[in-house]
Amino acid sequence: MIPDQPNDVSKRFFELPFEERSKYMSRDMRAPVRYGTSSNQNKDVVFCWRDFLKLSCHDPLSDVLPLWPSSPVDLRQAVINYSKNTKFLYLMLTEAILESLGLVDITNIEKEYDDELREFKDGSQLIVVNCYPACPEPELTLGLPPHTDYGLLTLLFQDEVQGLQIQHEGRWVTVQPLPDSLVVNVGDHLEIFSNGRYKSVMHRVLVNASKSRISVASLHSLPFDSVVQPSPKLISEDNPRRYMDTDFASFLDYSSSDEPKKKSFLESRKLMT
C-alpha cells in the first residue's frame, strides 16, 4: 500500500480554473514551481498532450513550501507526505544499487558506507504531477515523446489508465498499471555513475480517447550543484571510462538548446558506444 496516494489531490488541482493554475506558469526550466504544457515550452514545435505541475522539494522544505500552490488546500501536505515517503524508498533502493555495484558492503556499514551514501541522502528531489486529458484523436499525438529521465531514479505512481510504455529490444511495451504500486525508472545519471552497468530506460506516454490519466513522478538525483561522473571504483583497464562528467546545469542548457533534435542528452555524454 502506498501511503497518501497523490492522484486525488492532483486531479483536483488540474480541475481548478485555468486562471488559478496559470499563476504558476513559467518558461524558466530552473523555476522551483512550474505549471505548463509540453516538455520544453521554449523549443517544442508540437506541444505534448499533457499539463504538468513541477515542484522542487529542496531541503529544508520551508524554503520552497510558500511557493507551492495553496489550492487545493490539502495539496501542500499531500506533496510533503508523498515526497518524504518516496525519498525513504529511494534511499533503500540506492543502498541496494550501491551494494550490487560492489561499492558498499551492507554487512559493514561504518564510515565507508556513510561517506558513499551521504551525497545521495542530500540529493535533489523533484515532484512532477502529470495530467493527460482524454484526446479525441490519440493517434495524432503523444502525452510525452520518447525520452530518458536525467536523474538517478524516478519513482512513478500511475492511476488505473494505461499510457506508459518502455522500449525493450526495439519495441514498445505497455507498463500495466498495478494498484498500490510504483514504477521505478533508471535515469541517465545512474547509467553514468555506474559506468554503463545500469541502463537508462527509454519511455514514452500514450494518450487515451475516452479517459484522462494522472501520474506523479518523484525524480531523484545528486544535489543540483554536484558533478555526476562514473564511480572511479568502476573504472579499470578492462572497463574504461564510458561517460564524461556532467551536472544539472549542463542538462538544462542542453534541453533548452536545439541539440535534443539530434540526439539525447545521455548520447551527448558518451565517450564511447
Rank of each mutant, 00 (worst) to 15 (best):
M1E: 12
P3D: 09
D4S: 15
P6T: 11
D8R: 11
R12F: 03
E15R: 14
P17F: 10
E20Q: 14
S22V: 08
Y24V: 07
M25N: 07
R27D: 11
R27K: 14
R27P: 00
D28Q: 06
R30S: 09
R30C: 03
P32A: 06
V33M: 09
S38P: 01
D44E: 12
C48S: 13
C48A: 14
C48L: 04
D51W: 03
L53E: 05
K54G: 10
D59K: 14
L61W: 08
L65P: 02
L67R: 08
S71G: 06
Q77E: 15
I80L: 13
L89W: 02
L98T: 08
L101V: 07
V104T: 06
V104F: 09
D105R: 09
I106A: 13
I106T: 15
N108A: 14
N108M: 12
E110L: 11
E110S: 15
G123E: 08
L126Q: 10
C131S: 12
G143W: 02
L144K: 01
P145R: 15
H147Q: 12
H147M: 08
D149G: 11
Y150F: 13
L152S: 12
L155E: 04
Q158K: 05
E160N: 14
E160I: 01
V161C: 04
L164N: 03
I166C: 06
Q167I: 05
E169K: 13
V173C: 09
T174Q: 10
L182D: 04
L182S: 06
V184W: 04
V184T: 13
V186D: 09
D188E: 09
H189L: 02
L190T: 02
I192S: 02
N195F: 01
H203S: 09
R204N: 07
L206A: 05
S210T: 14
S210N: 12
H220K: 02
L222Y: 02
P223N: 10
S226G: 06
V228I: 15
Q229C: 10
E237F: 00
Y243I: 02
M244R: 15
D245M: 07
F248Y: 15
D253Y: 03
S256C: 10
E259P: 00
P260Q: 05
P260I: 03
P260R: 05
K262S: 13
K263P: 00
E267W: 01
R269L: 13
L271V: 07
M272I: 15
T273N: 14
